[in-house]
Design a protein around this nucleic acid. Structure first.
Lengths: 357, 357
DNA sequence: GTGAAAGCGCTAACAA
DNA sequence: TTGTTAGCGCTTTCAC
C-alpha cells in the first residue's frame, strides 16, 4: 500500500466499503490501490491496453493476478450501456436448432459475446415473457426463431434499440432483419418433386402449426402444389405430430389407416420422416415402390438410413452464422453504416434426392 | 404530472438526466414521478407487491403500463448482488445435453432464472475462459459437464461463493456438488453383459478421451471388465471417433479391418453405435449373430432402429432437473440449511437389452 | 406503509 | 498518458 495515501478520503471510503463477506471478489479499487494507480488505469488496462503505458500496464496486471481479480461485468454494463450478451429464443434445443446455435456462437464468441438461451417448449406465449426478461437484462441483440410473435413482443422490439433477427423463415413484414428461407417454397418444391415422380395420393405429416409459421408455410406449400396439379389434399391425408421418431411412426400408421391408398408421404421434418420410414419397413411396405417417403431438414441420419431419405436440405448452421454476422456488423459497425446492412438474407434450400422417393 | 412537484430538486435532476437518446427505456424514476410516489414504492411494487398498499400499487402499475416500463435487471443485480442468471457449460448442444438443459430450465424457469449457455466444442481450454466470463457476469450458479477442469477453474470456483454442480459423472473430489452416474460402472456393466452373452472378442469404439472423463471412464470400465474375464483388449480393438453417425460407420469399418475376428462392438455412444450398426448391415453382417452391437445413451432411435439397439440408459433429463433442484434449494433455501443439501446425487444407469446384443 | 440517502463497481467525459 | 468527477438505475438501510 502506498503510505502517501494515508489520511485521504478515498482510503477511508475504501475501508468502510470493504466490510464485505469473506470470499468475495476483489474490486477494481483494490487492484488500483495495490498497483498504486487510479481505477481508470485499471479499467483502461482491461479494455484498451494500448492506451496505457507499459509500466502501468505491468503493475496493473501484476495486481490483478495477485488479487485474482475478475471484473464485474454487471457494473461495466450498467455504466457503459453495453452487456456483450446476445440472446436467442428457440422452440427447443434439438439437433437442428443446435446447429443454428452453433453458428451463432461461432461468430459471436469471436466478438466476445455470451449467449443467453430461451426455449419456448410447447408454450407459444412463453416467447413474450422471454423477450421481456432478455430486454430487462439489456441484451445487446436478439435472435428469434420464426416470424410469428405477439403484438406486445413486436411492439417492444420495434421500440427497442437493439438489433433483432428473425430466423428459419422469410417474413413479409420483419421486425428488423431476417435470415432464413422460404418454407412455403420448400414445401411446394418437394411436393412438386413427388408429383413429378408420378405420385397422385400424397399424404402430409407435419408439426402442429399453432404459433409455428415454419410448419404452417410448409403445409401451405404442399397444399398449393397439390392444388396446382389438381390432386386432392383433404384433411384425411394430413396429420400433425410433435417432432419425435415415435410420433412419426404413429402418424404414419394413422395416415395409412385413414387413407390406405396413399402412394407417398411428405413428412415436413426428418424426425417424423425417419419414424414413418421405420414404420413402413416394419409393416412390410416397400419404399419407394409401395410408398415414397420424403422428409425435411437433411438430418445426419437421412443419408445413412436404409433406404436413404429424400429430403429438403436447409443450411441450419448457416442460418445461425449469417444471423450473428448481421448482428455483429450492426453492433460493432461504424455509425451510419447501419443502413447499408442487408436486412433480409435468403439462405435457400435444396432438394436432396435419395432412395426413399 | 403533479403540479405540486414543480421547482423541486428531484424534478430538475430528472430533466438533466433525461437527455438520453430517443427510443430508450423508461427508468424507475419516471414511473415513480408519473405515479406520484417514490422510487422505492415502485421497486417494492415490482419485487414485493404485498408490502405496498393497494392504492400505491395500482397507481404504480398504471404508470408502468403507460410508460411500457421494463426494469433494468443490470442495475437491480448490481445493487442487490443477485443476477437470477444460471450458467451451464456443455461440450456441445446435441440431443443428449439438450435433454439435460431442458431439465435445468424446467426447474430454473420456475424460480425466475435465465440461462447462459457455453459450449466447449472441441477445445477443452475453452472451459476456463467460459467460467471466467460467467463469473465476471456474476451468475448465481453454475452447471458443468464432467469432472475434468483446469487448476485455475477449480481454484476460482472453490474460492467463489456460488454453488456449482458437476454433472454426467461422479467425481472423486468434487468442486462442490455432483449429479451424475458412474460412467466407469456403466462401461463395465455393459461389457460384462456382452461377455455373459458369450462374446470373446469385444471391440470398443468411443469418443476421444482428451479432457473427457466420461469417455475415459467408460473405456476404463470396458478394460477392467475384459481384464476380469481374462479377455484381450489390445489397442487393435479400440478406436476413438467424434460423435457422429458417419464416424460410427467409419470407426466400425476400421475396427473390422484391423481385427476381422471381433464378435462384438461396444460403442460408448448411441450415435456411434447406430452408425456402426448401419455399416454392419450394409456390409451384410448379421446382427447379433455375426457381431453384437451395444450402445450408450438410449437415444430415441435405439428403440426404433432394426435391429433395435441394446444400450445403456442414462437419465439425461433427470441429471439436469436434479442439478437445478440442488442449486435452487441452495440459492433460495434458508441460511444454514445449506449444509443439509445432499452434495452427491447418483442418478444411476440401466442396461436396456434389445435385439442387437 | 412509505421515503430519503447512500451506495453497488464500473466507465464516459472531461481535466490536467 | 493519467486522473477526477459524476453518474449508470436500481436496492439497502434506516428514519419516519
Amino acid at each position: 500500500m502506498a503510505p502517501s495515501e494515508s489520511d485521504q478520503t478515498p482510503s477511508e471510503e475504501r475501508t468502510r466499503r470493504s466490510r464485505r463477506k469473506q470470499g468475495e471478489q476483489a474490486r477494481m479499487t483494490e487492484v488500483a490501490e495495490r498497483a498504486g494507480v487510479s481505477v481508470m488505469s485499471v479499467s483502461r488496462t482491461i479494455r484498451d491496453p494500448e492506451r496505457v503505458s507499459r509500466k502501468i500496464r505491468e503493475r496493473v496486471e501484476k495486481a490483478m493476478r495477485e488479487t485474482g481479480y475478475i471484473p464485474n461485468a454487471l457494473a461495466s454494463s450498467l455504466a457503459s450501456n453495453r452487456t456483450r450478451v446476445a440472446a436467442v429464443i428457440v422452440p427447443f434445443i434439438n439437433a437442428s436448432f443446435g446447429d443454428t446455435i452453433h453458428g451463432i456462437t461461432d461468430v459471436l464468441e469471436e466478438a466476445g459475446y455470451e449467449l443467453l438461451i430461451g426455449q419456448i417448449h410447447h408454450a407459444v406465449e412463453r416467447e413474450e415473457r422471454l423477450v421481456e426478461a432478455f430486454l430487462s437484462r439489456r441484451v445487446d441483440c436478439l435472435v428469434l426463431t420464426g416470424c410469428t410473435h405477439s403484438e406486445t413482443t413486436i411492439e417492444r422490439l420495434r421500440n427497442g434499440r437493439i438489433p433483432v433477427v428473425e430466423t428459419w423463415n422469410l417474413a413479409e413484414d420483419p421486425i428488423d432483419s431476417v435470415v432464413g428461407f422460404s418454407n412455403y417454397e420448400a414445401g411446394r418444391a418437394m411436393t412438386r418433386y413427388l408429383i413429378g415422380k408420378g405420385r397422385k395420393r400424397i399424404a402430409y405429416l407435419g408439426a402442429p402449426t399453432e404459433g409455428n409459421d415454419r410448419a404452417r408455410d410448409r403445409e401451405r406449400g404442399y397444399i398449393d402444389a397439390m392444388e396446382e396439379a389438381g390432386l386432392p389434399h383433404d384433411r384425411k391425408v394430413r396429420a400433425y405430430r410433435p417432432l419425435a421418431l415415435r410420433e412419426g411412426a404413429d402418424g404414419c400408421q394413422e395416415l395409412l389407416e385413414r387413407a390406405p391408398d396413399i402412394d407417398a408421404l411428405f413428412a415436413a421434418s426428418d424426425t417424423l420422416a425417419v419414424g414413418a420410414l421405420f414404420h413402413c419397413v416394419k409393416r412390410g411396405l416397400s419404399i419407394p415402390d409401395d410408398i415414397a417417403v420424403a422428409g425435411f431438414d437433411d438430418a445426419d441420419i437421412a443419408a445413412v438410413i436404409h433406404p436413404s431419405l429424400t429430403t429438403v436440405r436447409v443450411p441450419r448452421y448457416e442460418i445461425g452464422r449469417r444471423a450473428a454476422m448481421l448482428l455483429a456488423q450492426r453492433l460493432d459497425g461504424v455509425d451510419g453504416e447501419d443502413d447499408y446492412v442487408q436486412r433480409t438474407v435468403d439462405v435457400g434450400f435444396e432438394i436432396i434426392i435419395r432412395d426413399s422417393a
